[in-house]
Computed example of a mutant assay.
Amino acid sequence: MTFTLTVSDEVRALAPGFTHVAIEAYGLANGPSTEASSALLDEAARRLAARLDGRAPHEDPHMAAWRETYTAFGSKPSRTRNSAEALAKRALTDAGLPRINLLVDLYNAVSVAHLIPVGGEDLDRVQGGMRLVRATGEEDFVTVAGGEEAVEHPDAGEVVWRDEAGVTCRRWNWRQGPRTRLTEETVSGIFLLETLAPLPVVQAQAAATELAELLEKFSPGARIEVHAPVSAGTPA
């Protein structure tokens, strides 16, 4: 992997059933949402509804596992939902899923269809590699509040993704910071699919393959590399 992702021993101990699959992508073509990306989001919502078959998203075994893990590091999962559950909840409303930009639409569609948290970071905005750690509480998380830049700090013990400059995503995969998010100018990205037991690893691989194929379809000529799944018991 050209880009480094590491998972701390403390996070491995907290969630021994954690697995992540990374996709590196270079030469991407991003832009505003399109009719095609919008259609993918609508189809993802239909796939989700069929998968849940009348259940609420949090009743899915994979989402229940994420709720247990959030509780384990001191977060309240009914207030700060993992990204897949939050998207799924929106997908089932009349308003439906938000349209952000082409690349975000693609990974949100895969996230909702498979009920797997998926995130994307602009590699040109990430400083150094990314690490999944339990926060000290002193790290900076640069966000926007009231239309202005603001600095927050995670709770001590909270699981966060961070780079050399600070936190890039709070509460594991709850809220991404604007510094590294995918914008319409993004040309290089790292996409991360995160799963917990009891979801089989092969389902994470299938979701990653689907996302990689979509990236290739919407960014012809891009260099896409899907990395092998990394579990909590495997060095990252």
Rank of each mutant, 00 (worst) to 15 (best):
T2W: 04
T2C: 00
F3T: 08
T4R: 15
L5V: 15
L5T: 10
T6Y: 03
D9S: 14
E10P: 01
F18D: 01
H20L: 09
E24N: 08
L28K: 05
A29V: 12
A29T: 13
N30A: 12
P32Y: 08
P32R: 14
T34G: 07
A36P: 06
S37P: 13
S37R: 09
L40E: 09
A44S: 13
R47F: 07
L48P: 05
L48T: 08
G54Y: 10
G54D: 12
H62A: 13
M63P: 00
A65Q: 08
E68L: 13
E68K: 11
T71M: 04
T71C: 03
F73K: 13
G74E: 05
S75Y: 03
N82S: 05
N82L: 00
A84Q: 00
E85G: 01
A86M: 04
A86D: 03
A91I: 03
A91K: 01
T93F: 05
R99V: 03
I100M: 04
L102H: 10
L103Y: 05
V104F: 06
D105F: 02
L106Q: 08
Y107V: 03
V110I: 15
V110G: 07
S111E: 09
L115V: 10
G120I: 06
Q127F: 11
G129C: 08
G129V: 05
R131W: 09
D140L: 07
A145Q: 10
A145K: 11
G146C: 13
G147A: 06
D155P: 00
D155K: 09
A156D: 11
V160I: 15
R162P: 05
E164T: 10
A165V: 08
V167D: 00
C169Q: 07
R170M: 02
R170D: 00
R171T: 08
W172R: 11
W174M: 06
Q176I: 11
Q176T: 14
P178C: 08
T180H: 15
T186R: 06
G189N: 14
I190R: 04
L192M: 13
L193S: 00
L196H: 03
P200Y: 13
P200N: 14
P200C: 13
V201F: 07
A204S: 15
Q205C: 07
A206F: 06
A208L: 05
A212P: 06
E213H: 11
L214Y: 04
L214M: 14
E216P: 01
K217F: 02
F218H: 13
F218D: 00
S219L: 03
P220G: 07
G221I: 13
I224M: 06
I224A: 06
A232I: 10
A232G: 14
G233W: 01
G233I: 01
P235M: 03
